[in-house]
Design a protein around this nucleic acid. Structure first.
Lengths: 216, 216
DNA sequence: TTGTGTATACCACAATTGAGTGAATTATTG
DNA sequence: CAATAATTCACTCAATTGTGGTATACACAA
């Protein structure tokens, strides 16, 4: 079963060229190519792609807005951003919008095909300079090491904090048990101590409390 | 002028093998290989590397601590992390510590050499799964935009927003029904449409999404 | 007129969670 | 050393939640 790819790209030449390359490569099929995002949701619904090649610089709705929309409506579709520029702002927005990869337009067709496959397989191909920017941005934004005073004073043990964190990721008890290599019942026991310490009585309330008090 | 590489690696076999490969490849020279980080600063000073291949799992000072120290003492030296594991925690810590790349140990020698060169040239090579994790972590930690467009585009109806809000107060379905003068089953029906629109499958995840996207 | 979305409500079954109780092992600390 | 907390696991039972249907009614747009 070939990888279904849709293209959103201003430039007709580039668009047609991509389409030709994809259809000419074993294991790929271009199920749609569009010059704008004006009927984005409709177009995506019709072409049912696994991966979308998204130009970032487009008239009307730009590639980043489009990426956000697509990720909201079709979270499982992977999006590979294509751009001529590599400024921090664009990279940052694209990733926050939910892009799975970020390639410069100067990339060779062969590498683009390879990147498309990598995206499809759950990877995150990025042109070298981009990857480096991402790491820098990451270091800049990630580790403010928040640890509010409540976090310490909440008396949650290390294990309990781990579990609360996973609860805040949306994991259920079975998933947590699996991730932490614990038995289901052990997780439930820990959850009960969390409830006791936070004075709550459900996942629901524990998460709310954790968020509101910036506990994590 | 060849790229000067130093190796920090527990396993003698792996260490010697890396050294042989580097010295056997044009454009590279191994200027030091060490089995621990016990005399880290001293060793780095002596070997004056451009790039360091750093094993993450080592006795004594581990690779992440070592990376921090090196980046502190010799900011211009690039560090390529090597690991067998790819859990979020390690990836996260390594990048925050200042690593320039993150390769799994199963990577082929050829790709490792290529990654070393890429690091030297200012890139950030990462094994596919790792790069993907980085993007995910990035999205997780990036500062949420103050006015999230998701609020408007979430398409939640008035009733659905009301109910989501009460869920975020920690109310259960019975409590919500009572507060809104609805039947228990009506609340559940609304909750189902909320899940559909937010692409989630539990109270748990709906609340997290609402908080993170500043939906309410 | 038909379709779509919203709001309301009910039934039934499966899965998950909450609460009670008990118990063993390993830190940690007074 | 003894007390305490943390961590681990198990079993039960009731309550809540998740998911599949089905149904009526209203409003608004194609």
């Amino acid at each position: 079963m070939p990888i279904r790819v849709a293209i959103f790209e201003d430039n007709k030449l580039v668009r047609d060229s991509f389409e030709a390359i994809l259809n000419g490569t074993d294991g790929f099929i271009c199920t749609g190519s569009f010059s704008s995002c004006n009927s984005l949701v409709h177009d995506v619904k019709r072409s049912q792609p696994d991966v979308i090649l998204m130009d970032i610089e487009m008239n009307g709705i730009n590639g980043i807005e489009a990426t956000k929309t697509i990720k909201q409506e079709f979270p499982s579709i992977k999006i590979l951003i294509q751009t001529v520029f590599e400024d921090d702002d664009k990279v940052f927005s694209a990733i926050c919008a939910g892009a799975s990869g970020y390639m410069l337009k100067k990339t060779s067709p062969a590498k683009l095909i390879e990147a498309t496959r990598e995206v499809y397989e759950g990877g995150a191909p990025m042109s070298p300079g981009i990857a480096s920017k991402v790491l820098t941005l990451f270091q800049k934004f990630a580790p403010p090491e928040p640890k509010s005073p409540d976090y310490e004073s909440s008396n949650l043990s290390k294990r309990e904090k781990e579990i609360l964190l996973l609860m805040m990721e949306g994991d259920n008890f079975h998933a947590i048990a699996k991730k932490l290599f614990l038995s289901y019942d052990t997780v439930r026991t820990h959850v009960r101590s969390i409830y006791k310490k936070l004075h709550v009585a459900s996942v629901n309330q524990a998460i709310v409390k954790a968020f509101k008090q910036r506990l994590i």
